[in-house]
Design a binder for these strands. Structure first.
Lengths: 199, 199
DNA sequence: CCTACCGATCGGTAGG
DNA sequence: CCTACCGATCGGTAGG
């Protein structure tokens, strides 16, 4: 994924700069963000960023891989819990919103840029992650159809994209500081997706 | 919205160029798209685009306003049909997918760029449209809660964002040339949202 | 982390 | 629609 060249990972200033960069990338989009904007917001000059990072691309790389590492750590725990399909489904949605709380800007960047970035070799792990993601969710949906938790006539590939999009796109408006916690939103979402909004 | 300066709207070549530009914008993002890329793909040189259009921004403007004009024309018909909340809901989803079929690249651009573009004065109609959109869907959901079509405990603002995102984000993967028509996808979506995926 | 700078590329234009 | 070009801005670097 990433080999920081100049400052050890986890260092205070470096983490601060990454958080700033993530916010700007999420707000303006990766391409529309200039290293000058990031530097401005961090209170330094553009050139000084290169004391901490190799390139603009490295910053995006570190932001995205940190998010995906945490996400897969969370998903792994749910996979290993050996739950039924409906409970697995609920667990995955809840975990996704929890990660959104921690990595909101990263999720927005992921949503907007992953497709384009994944074409580059250094971002190959984005494509790997998407594959794994698809398998995990598809498998959960299929298990649920098989054991009668989910509707027999469910079109699994369509349902998969429906759920995936529905959950992640919420990062655009979801504010953990708002009136609702991640767990509450997750509960509302699973309820709407599992049981529908009609009576 | 837009005042084409140099070639009458609807002219063959102009429409062709807009379709090309829309595809490139959708594929690469507005900022990452250079006028040279659009010109290349249209088989002309960058400078020649300016015989047809004032600016790169004008192209995006025309693409987005053409889409929104058609969308609101479609929605207006449904509003005027005087249907109940559930049927209005189904009609709006179906119409949205129908417009996605006609204006897929425009919808992708809208998804990715509307928030940022809306800040500019010339794209003020994007913010107006979002307002109108929110009112129409919120009103439909509220009517449904009131008459018992939708669940009494439904959180309307959350449900609104849920439905809005869920429908439009489908433009990223939806291919009208694929195995499923817009009407079929719309039917699957309304079924999942209204009645859920669980048994 | 700053000063000072560079090559590349961008959106756009004048003139034909 | 092309030729030829421009000012601005970009990501990034050398040297301190």
């Amino acid at each position: 994924m990433v080999t920081p060249k100049k400052t050890p990972a986890g260092t205070g200033r470096r983490a601060e700069l990454l958080a700033t960069a993530a916010e700007v990338f999420a707000e303006l989009g990766y391409n529309a963000t200039t290293v000058r904007t990031i530097a401005d917001r961090a209170g330094m000059l553009a050139g000084s960023l290169y004391y901490h990072f190799d390139s603009k691309e490295s910053m995006a790389d570190e932001i995205l891989s940190a998010f995906l590492t945490d996400l897969w750590e969370g998903y792994r725990r749910i996979e290993e819990a050996g739950l039924g399909p409906r409970e697995t489904f609920e667990g995955l949605v809840t975990e996704s919103f929890r990660q959104m709380e921690r990595h909101r800007p990263a999720v927005v960047i992921y949503q907007k840029e992953a497709r384009r970035l994944a074409a580059q070799e250094r971002f190959g792990y984005l494509a790997d992650s998407q594959q794994r993601f698809r398998k995990l969710w598809t498998h959960t949906l299929e298990r649920g159809v098989a054991d009668g938790s989910f509707r027999r006539e469910l079109d699994v590939p369509v349902a998969y994209r429906f759920v995936r999009d529905t959950v992640w796109v919420a990062a655009v408006w979801f504010r953990p500081r708002g009136r609702k916690s991640a767990a509450q939103i997750a509960q509302q979402y699973t309820s709407m997706v599992l049981d529908g909004i009609a009576t």
